[in-house]
Design a protein around this nucleic acid. Structure first.
Lengths: 212, 212
DNA sequence: GGATAGTACGACCGATCGTGCTAATTTGTC
DNA sequence: GACAAATTAGCACGATCGGTCGTACTATCC
């Protein structure tokens, strides 16, 4: 009956996790700074001081929230995407996982890191550094997948992986931003179509059929 | 000497304008919501209540700030871009005006509306509606310029203006976001190059205006 | 059974939030 | 220069902010 081996997490660890998951979700709407201890406590059904006992400061809470958001993003986007076959397939899998993550609405305000990056991009400090670090790694993951596609001969050899990764991330971020703003899921398809075209070799354009 | 037409504004109107220009600038860093009356009053050198006398509520101040930001954007980006010759030239002029606007650093946090859209995209209300309205108009301006380029035969006829406008805006927004985040002006060139390629125009770096 | 550590609570702090009210001051008009 | 209007400051309010404190409950370990 002592399942403590597998269920190692204590009660405090469980509530800490609940707090951070709620914080990540709320932060996509209220912002990392607009998210207050009081509102977060109310959302998780705890007292302000009871919640705050888990963190040293608000910045500590924000950094922990970023770490949690990173775990969620890896679990929902990066990992499924990376499990696809290398090459253009994997690039598209990463994009589709991202767009599905946005459309699912696990975060009401779209991708946590797009919102966080837009909010903190002009506020120097540890928080911005962590966000920039994550964005850089995400761009790197796309660039690596692009480079593999190039090595496999699926895209033209003169394509610069960093350049294309920037473009792909721009399209994903714009879709993520426009989807809640206009409430129109069409933008997700628009972004998907743009990325798919970018992964097609322009030489094939003549033989390619009309896009519905 | 002093044109009575232009010097018509009263002292109150002048400070109101100063307030709103400062508010637009601060909002790109603090956010439209994070910007507080107290900090804004200190930034313009007024008392809190003296400043507040110009507005009915904070939401009124935010809406007025959006209107001011729209004026500034039109003056600095839209108008210069539209004054270029129709076609691909005008599309690129709009993009270059936007990128120059970002690089100039008139706003420390980059384009006001990218920041505002990211902040408010999941918060229904009048403020979000105004921002969405502006973004839609901006996308429409790009799409119109793209369509003219298509009619002039400068880009392939099967290009959908709305689709390409979305892509162009995505690249501009991503550059605007990454520039302060990484502090690297290279992203502006990356976006410019991607847009130029999309317009089938060789990125003739030599003849281009200075983007750092 | 008593001591200990983990966890959450309510009460409270000084500061600041948005927002009114009134008084003082500046400005424009005659 | 006087007067009315426009503009700004002073002051105070209730609410909420991040943060601290002491306390109580609950397991676990000796």
């Amino acid at each position: 009956m002592a399942e403590s081996l597998t269920t190692h997490q204590s009660a405090g660890e469980r509530s800490r996790q609940t707090i951070l998951e709620t914080a990540a979700r709320l932060a996509t709407v209220e912002g990392l700074d607009g998210l207050t201890i009081g509102k977060l406590a109310e959302a998780v059904g705890m007292s302000k001081s009871g919640l705050y006992a888990h963190f040293k400061s608000k910045e500590d809470l924000q950094l922990a929230t970023i770490a949690m958001a990173r775990e969620i993003f890896d679990r929902e986007v990066t990992d499924p995407g990376q499990s696809a076959a290398p090459g253009a397939t994997r690039v598209l899998a990463l994009c589709d996982a991202f767009l599905a993550h946005v459309e699912d609405g696990v975060y009401p305000g779209g991708c946590f890191f797009v919102a966080a990056a837009a909010e903190m991009n002009a506020r120097p400090g540890e928080i911005r550094d962590h966000i920039a670090q994550f964005v850089a790694e995400w761009l790197g993951a796309i660039a690596t997948a692009v480079e593999q596609a190039r090595e496999l001969g699926e895209i033209e050899p003169q394509v610069e992986p960093g350049q294309l990764a920037f473009e792909i991330n721009a399209l994903l971020s714009a879709a993520n931003l426009a989807y809640p703003l206009f409430g129109d899921p069409t933008v997700l398809h628009v972004a998907r179509k743009a990325i798919a075209e970018r992964l097609d070799t322009p030489a094939d354009e003549a033989t390619r059929g009309p896009i519905s």
